[in-house]
Nucleic acid binder design. Structure first.
Length: 393
DNA sequence: TCTGGGGTCCTAGGACCC
DNA sequence: TCTGGGGTCCTAGGACCC
């Protein structure tokens, strides 16, 4: 296996992102515990975290833990702006940026030694640039792989910088509890402890740097996440919207109306992103917190609200017995199997068997876009003709 | 304390095709 | 008439992340 001489992957992660933006924009909040989100904690400042407040915690519990915290409603558009500004700083640092979420990204600075210096210096400047230009604290982990860089930034938080040198990887990982590994959550950690009585990385595997965790699922997840190489230009793979319903019982008509609102939202976002979808998924959650999904894949990709809504309503009808039986507390819609909406419409009539039209369509794609495009084209029936969506490589 | 809203990825079984 | 092996697609569930 090829081993790079030194770590050149940065994982940059804004600290308590939403809460930091609030503290940046309102000086009175600085140095005070801040909680963003009332029903459930979307973000907590480090002053609030000191009292045990955590992301995703119910709001009531958070206020009990930290009664003097300032609770503010989320301002999503402001966070989106701040995120864009931070990503501009990332992209001025290196073109090899892989965004992971609104507030974190991997940066590959491996080729920049001559022009920008070693990774540690680049990381120092990156943190300073984000502080100066956007006014937010950010933590950076530096290592040989994405996986290690991600774990390093988590360990270095808040407002920190941690470089894991290639010959220090074992020493870095060994004392960590298994939950610190990216992709190991509560369930996997519990299984590990039950099965093996292992609590730390050292217990889990003393022999080498392979992240050994309990299940094949976790192993493959870790392997995938550790895959070297920062992937630029990844596109969203699904678009969803959901709504919590509370405990009150809802009639079918009311659910259907709520569903229409959700579909309208996701379909708008689909069109705004110049995408089409082929799979519509209905998500349900019940009062015992169990979940169910029902999905339907359309023959043709679409971005039309009516078509998506018809599919979603069909799924709701099919799920009606389940809903009648258990208390429904959440309903959601997700669109997946996404594609660009620049499909070529070819007005090619089918012959008796549809085959001649297919051949003509393949020839037309080859003529217009070259041989490689044929491989990337899906030929779909559309009324009396064909639609040819071209998949990006 | 009774839990939001947005995502990603993996697995497994069944249908279907060659 | 019964049979193998390989592949893709769809559906559903689940773990995890921010």
């Amino acid at each position: 296996m090829f081993v790079p001489p030194e770590g050149s992957i940065l994982h940059a992660d804004l600290d308590a992102f939403y809460a930091s933006v609030e503290q940046r924009d309102d000086p009175r909040l600085r140095g005070r515990p801040v909680i963003v989100g009332a029903g459930v904690v979307l973000a907590a400042s480090y002053e609030a975290k000191a009292y045990g407040v955590r992301t995703a915690m119910p709001g009531g519990q958070a206020r009990r833990l930290c009664p003097h915290a300032v609770v503010v409603p989320p301002r999503m558009s402001v966070y989106a702006q701040a995120s864009k500004a931070v990503f501009r700083v990332f992209e001025q640092t290196t073109p090899l940026v892989e965004g992971l979420s609104i507030d974190e990204a991997f940066l590959d600075v491996g080729g920049l030694l001559r022009v920008a210096g070693p990774p540690r210096e680049i990381a120092v400047r990156l943190r300073r640039a984000v502080a100066e230009h956007v006014g937010l604290p950010i933590t950076v982990g530096v290592a040989r792989t994405k996986f290690l860089a991600k774990v390093a930034s988590a360990v270095a938080k808040p407002d920190g910088l941690l470089v894991v040198p290639p010959d220090g990887e074992l020493a870095f990982l060994h004392p960590l509890p298994v939950e610190r590994l990216w992709g190991v959550g509560q369930v996997t950690a519990r299984k590990l402890r039950e099965r093996r009585g292992r609590r730390t990385r050292q217990d889990a595997d003393d022999r080498d740097a392979r992240p050994v965790v309990g299940s094949a699922r976790a192993r493959s997840g870790v392997r995938r996440r550790s895959a070297p190489g920062v992937r630029v230009g990844r596109r969203r793979r699904s678009i969803g919207a959901q709504r919590a319903l509370g405990r009150r019982r809802r009639e079918h008509d009311e659910l259907s109306a709520i569903l229409a609102g959700l579909v309208d939202r996701v379909a708008r976002r689909l069109r705004a992103g110049h995408r089409v979808c082929r799979t519509v998924t209905l998500r349900l959650r019940f009062d015992d917190f169990s979940r169910a999904t029902r999905s339907h894949t359309l023959v043709e990709p679409t971005a039309h609200t009516e078509i998506i809504l018809a599919a979603a309503r069909g799924l709701l009808v099919a799920a009606a017995p389940m809903i009648a039986h258990d208390g429904l507390t959440l309903i959601g819609v997700a669109l997946s199997n996404l594609d660009s909406d620049d499909a070529i419409q070819l007005a090619l009539p089918f012959d008796q068997h549809g085959t001649a039209a297919l051949d003509v369509a393949v020839d037309a794609v080859r003529d217009r876009f070259g041989t490689a495009a044929v491989r990337r084209a899906a030929l779909l029936r559309h009324g009396e003709g064909l639609v040819v969506p071209l998949m990006p490589d």
